[in-house]
């Protein structure tokens, strides 16, 4: 390789590095959640839902991983299987009893995960449109402030 080619290759590499660092720097300084520049992605996995009867309730669980460079916020939920979906949390009290309450808006920082799991946070499916039984699958959509709406396919299964 000739010296001029070496020089060009080095210059090209420096340009790529600068471009990469520049983008990351911009996004990490973002505090405005309306900014539409999104690097990386939010992923949903490990999703499953409990069986339930028509007009009854069910609970769905999944893991949300914020792989973007910015904080994101969960705003709302919906499903083809239920009239409404709410984020709830089971709370253990000092006297050993358990109750449930709405979990409020969840902010998920960059690179962090939000785990919905039995005995903790869960998506409560309210007024199921039909019976959902083991082997069925539902679609649940989660609306985020930055990345918009993501939809998970959620199998119905029995907790093991």
């Amino acid at each position: 390789m000739k010296p001029i080619q070496h020089l060009l290759l080095i210059l090209l590499s420096v340009c790529f590095l600068l471009l990469g660092c520049g983008s990351e720097s911009n996004s990490s300084n973002e505090s405005d959640t309306t900014n539409k520049v999104v690097l990386g992605k939010v992923t949903l996995d490990n999703a499953w839902a409990r069986p339930g009867s028509q007009q009854g309730k069910s609970a769905a669980y999944l893991r949300i991983s914020n792989g973007t460079a910015s904080t994101d916020t969960l705003l709302s939920f919906s499903s083809d299987a239920a009239e409404s979906v709410e984020l709830h949390e089971s709370i253990k009290h000092d006297d050993g009893t358990t109750s449930m309450q709405p979990a409020g808006q969840q902010v998920i920082p960059s690179t962090e995960k939000l785990q919905l799991q039995p005995g903790g946070m869960h998506l409560m499916l309210i007024n199921l449109k039909k019976d959902i039984t083991v082997g069925d699958s539902l679609r649940i959509s989660l609306d985020f402030a930055r990345v918009g709406t993501l939809t998970a396919t959620v199998p119905v299964q029995i907790q093991q």
């Binding site: 409990r50 339930g52 009854g56 309730k57 069910s58 609970a59 709830h88 089971s90 358990t98 449930m100 039995p118 005995g119 869960h122 409560m124 499916l125 907790q159």
Partner: peptide, 8 residues
């Protein structure tokens, strides 16, 4: 009617 803890 308990969607979370009772099924657990």
């Amino acid at each position: 009617n308990c969607p979370d803890v009772c099924p657990a």
